[in-house]
Amino acid sequence: MSTTIAAIVIGMTLVTYIPRMLPFVLFKGKELPYFWQGILQNVPYATLGALIFPGILTFHENTAFALIGTAAAFILAFTGANIIVTVLGSIGILTVLSVFSM
């Protein structure tokens, strides 16, 4: 295992486990301020937005290919496909596309 990945694993383990564990050790039924609860609930949606854009537009050197993949993933997800179907469907559409354009 590379030292970089080992350091990432150790760091991620600590920052994931400590927030999971601390409330059990620290609290006797106290609660966080309402405002902070709201912010923490917002975090997953905001993070996902930032993770998708702009990265998805540049995952492939061919921008048209990346845009078609983006559209495919959004269309699949909006039609109610579950996550694995969205993932495999997007891969499938791009694979078919690259086979036929070669």
């Binding site: 949606y45 996902l48 937005g49 993770l51 998708i52 990265g55 998805i56 995952f59 492939h60 990346a66 993949g69 983006t70 495919a72 993933a73 959004f74 699949l76 997800a77 909006f78 496909a81 579950n82 996550i83 694995i84 969205t86 993932v87 469907g89 997007s90 891969i91 499938g92 791009l94 694979t95 690259s98 086979v99």
Partner: peptide
């Protein structure tokens, strides 16, 4: 290899799959 190249979309498709139900 041709599938592996297309798999670059997988991570983003996963995020989209996680996000879209909440967007609706």
């Amino acid at each position: 290899p041709v599938v592996q190249e297309s798999m670059g979309i997988a991570l983003y498709a996963m995020f989209i799959g996680l996000l879209v139900p909440s967007l609706k």
